[in-house]
């Protein structure tokens, strides 16, 4: 349920193009960062070797590749897929994990700075939707489990 997937037909084109390589800030400024190699490995069925690489996290998600792409696809999709797989296996930078845990626990990435707000004369922050979010997230997880272990009942 609600899983991102890759379009291999489009990636096939990507492997022959590489327009994004000339505009990507990480390609320009991080030595050894070359998503063309990543895409080739995905197509060859060797994506595993990238899961522990730092490179997949160095994609800044600036969407430059998407905009210059003749297919409006972009290799960021490939990088996102690899990050998702890596994260599922528990391989990710510590700050990503910390951010995710904070998000799941509080529905935010930080709480409003109350003393500073008071000093600046800002109004009380509005109520957050944390409780509703938690309910929703629990339901999402339950729905997935049901789909993975369908006990007799047919899913759509």
């Amino acid at each position: 349920m609600l899983e991102a997937t890759l379009n291999f037909k489009l990636l096939e084109q990507c492997s022959k193009c590489g327009a994004c390589f000339s505009i990507c800030p990480s390609c320009m400024h991080i030595p050894g960062y070359d998503p063309r190699a990543v895409i080739r490995d995905i197509l060859d069925g060797n994506h595993d070797k990238w899961l522990s690489s730092r490179h997949i996290w160095q994609c800044l998600e600036c969407h430059h590749c998407l905009e210059i792409c003749y297919q409006h696809y972009g290799f960021e999709n490939a990088m996102t897929a690899l990050r998702t797989i890596a994260a599922k296996k528990g391989i990710h930078p510590t700050q990503v994990k910390r951010g995710w845990e904070m998000f799941v626990k509080t529905s935010r990435l930080g709480e409003p700075a109350l003393p500073a707000r008071k000093k600046l004369g800002l109004p009380e922050p509005k109520a957050s939707g944390a409780d509703e979010f938690k309910k929703l997230y629990a339901m999402l997880k339950a729905a997935r489990e049901k789909k993975e272990n369908p006990e007799g009942k047919g899913s759509e």
Binding site: M1, L2, E3, A4, T80, T84, A87, V96, L140, R144
Partner: peptide, 8 residues
């Protein structure tokens, strides 16, 4: 942070 871990 979130999309990389759980798209849903």
């Amino acid at each position: 942070l979130v999309n990389n871990i759980d798209h849903g």
